[in-house]
Design a protein around this nucleic acid. Structure first.
Lengths: 208, 208
DNA sequence: GTCTATACTGGGATAGAC
DNA sequence: GTCTATCCCAGTATAGAC
């Protein structure tokens, strides 16, 4: 008895991208724990074995999503950090954009931070953190007067702050309503500003 | 042919705690993704159905672990925040302790932030974030001159920072060697100090 | 009240046919 | 490039032994 697939079948080499698209969709609906290659296959109208022609295993699908996430997020961040504002405000704007990204692309962001993926086992992801951080580096260098080591520590602090606010936003610490995203994003930006000003106070003429 | 269990069987009502202990052990070895009730049962020498006498489902086991994590973490934080140092240093010390806790009790911490558990569905965990934040509240209130709303925002910033550094530490951004933990913990403490000083600069010292 | 035996469901993965 | 068939493992549920 013939099957009646809900969608056209993928016989023409588009399955790889289709799997990634559908995986994002599925994670959006059911969260990371609800992701399965079997369900993705079902939605695409192919058998569960088909995706294995394009991905070695389930983790490689997640790695593909993580790569998309890094690409998109670092693009957004670079756009903010290249603005014409003073450097501390560019850092703050990038942190705000980071938090918004986590909210607007929740599935992608969760793959990045909560997939349980061992990033060191996937070459494309081995420098994921570096690529995110690099987006903050230029304004950080200006803030630090060219001191590369200080700038790197500042980048780490800004990324940690953004990541922290994003995490709290996603697990509901800012509430569930529409205002939550903007509240978290603004507070993250504000915290980054405080961080930069406080750094000046700690390393400036008065303190050591 | 009779089974030959590796350990004594649990016939005397200790299975619940034993399941939690073994779950921590297992997550420590294989990470969150490698956790399964079946493997826990196997290690304890009971059948896979036995834990269901004590836990409604897998999520309830994770919720039990998350509860342990919140209890232990908030205890550690309260101890730091109740020290006799100036309030901004108590906040910094608590942030440092937070990062150390994440490293030293990696399994517990991961359950808290990356289990995919819907915390709002488990009554005991509904105020997990609040209990963590409460540990920071006293020194934050002093820093903010008694302004409760400002103190709450400062607590959020400090928790976000600590959580951010902990997350970056656990996914290898600080490297894999023994120094990584202390580097992350110290930088987190330093960032919190900068945060407090920068807050003063933004709002005026001792003002609301 | 605690655990065992067992049966069902569903996901991950592979071999070989078309 | 995909399908069929198959295997193994994990989670869920329940009847019954002790």
């Amino acid at each position: 008895m013939p099957k009646s697939p809900k969608r056209e079948r993928y016989h023409h080499g588009e399955l790889k991208e289709a799997v990634l698209d559908t995986a994002i969709e599925l994670i959006g609906e059911r969260g990371m724990a609800g992701f399965s290659l079997a369900e993705v296959s079902r939605r695409l109208g192919v058998t569960v074995a088909a995706p294995y022609r394009h991905f070695a295993d389930r983790d490689e699908v997640l790695a593909g999503l993580a790569l998309r996430a890094v690409d998109e997020l670092s693009g957004v961040l670079r756009a903010q950090a290249a603005d014409s504002l003073p450097p501390r405000h560019r850092l703050a704007a990038a942190a705000r954009a980071f938090v918004r990204f986590a909210a607007e692309h929740r599935s992608l962001y969760q793959v990045l931070v909560a997939s349980g993926l061992d990033k060191s086992r996937h070459a494309e992801l081995r420098d994921a953190g570096g690529r995110i951080g690099a987006a903050f580096l230029d304004p950080a260098l200006v803030v630090c007067g060219g001191d590369a080591q200080a700038a790197q520590r500042l980048v780490t602090a800004v990324v940690a702050t953004a990541q922290g606010y994003a995490g709290m936003l996603l697990d509901g610490s800012f509430g569930q309503d529409g205002q939550a995203v903007e509240a978290a994003a603004l507070q993250a930006a504000h915290a980054v500003l405080a961080l930069v000003l406080g750094r000046d106070a700690l390393t400036g003429p008065a303190a050591g």
